[in-house]
Amino acid sequence: MSMPGSEGDSFSGKLRPGVESAGQLAKLHNMPAHSLADICGHKEELRRLREAIELPLKYGEALREKGIRPAKLVIVHGPPGTGKSTMIRALAADAGLKLFTVRWPQLVARSDDDSRRLLADTMARARANTPSLIVIDDLEFAGFGYGPASELSRKKSAQIAEAIDTLGRDEKIVVVVVSTSPEAVDPTMRKAGCLVEEIEFRLPGLAERKNILALQTRGLTLEGVDLSRIAAATDGFSGADLALLVRNAFLGAFRRASANGDISATGIDNAIVTDADFRAALQAASKKRQPESRGEVN
Rank of each mutant, 00 (worst) to 15 (best):
A120R: 14
D262G: 00
S181D: 15
I88G: 01
Q24P: 05
T266P: 00
K66I: 09
F201D: 11
S132F: 01
G193D: 14
M31V: 15
W104C: 04
A280V: 08
D112E: 12
G224W: 03
F250H: 13
A93R: 15
P291N: 03
R279W: 05
Q159S: 12
K84P: 00
L220T: 04
R202G: 15
G60H: 05
G78F: 11
L91S: 07
G224K: 06
I160H: 00
A257K: 01
K191L: 05
L107S: 04
L97A: 11
S293R: 13
D262T: 11
S35Y: 10
E223V: 00
A207C: 02
R64F: 03
S85V: 09
G18K: 06
G239T: 08
D275Q: 14
P17V: 08
M123E: 10
I134W: 09
E223F: 03
G5C: 11
T188K: 11
G239K: 06
T130V: 14
V225F: 03
R154F: 02
G219L: 04
L46R: 10
R16Y: 00
K58N: 13
T217P: 10
E45Y: 06
L46T: 11
D112P: 00
W104A: 03
S293A: 13
S85E: 08
P204L: 08
A71M: 01
E223L: 10
P56L: 09
A142V: 09
M189E: 01
G145D: 01
E65F: 03
P131C: 10
G67D: 01
S228D: 14
N211Q: 15
A149M: 09
L57V: 07
R218G: 03
A214L: 13
K72V: 00
S228W: 00
A207V: 13
I39E: 07
D226P: 04
Q106V: 00
W104H: 02
T188G: 12
S228T: 12
S85G: 12
V185D: 02
V246S: 06
V74E: 03
L118V: 02
K288R: 15
L152E: 13
V108E: 10
R169M: 02
P56C: 05
D38I: 06
G168I: 07
E54P: 06
R218C: 08
L242C: 02
Q106N: 11
L46F: 06
D275C: 08
T274W: 04
G252C: 10
T130Y: 01
A276V: 13
A265P: 04
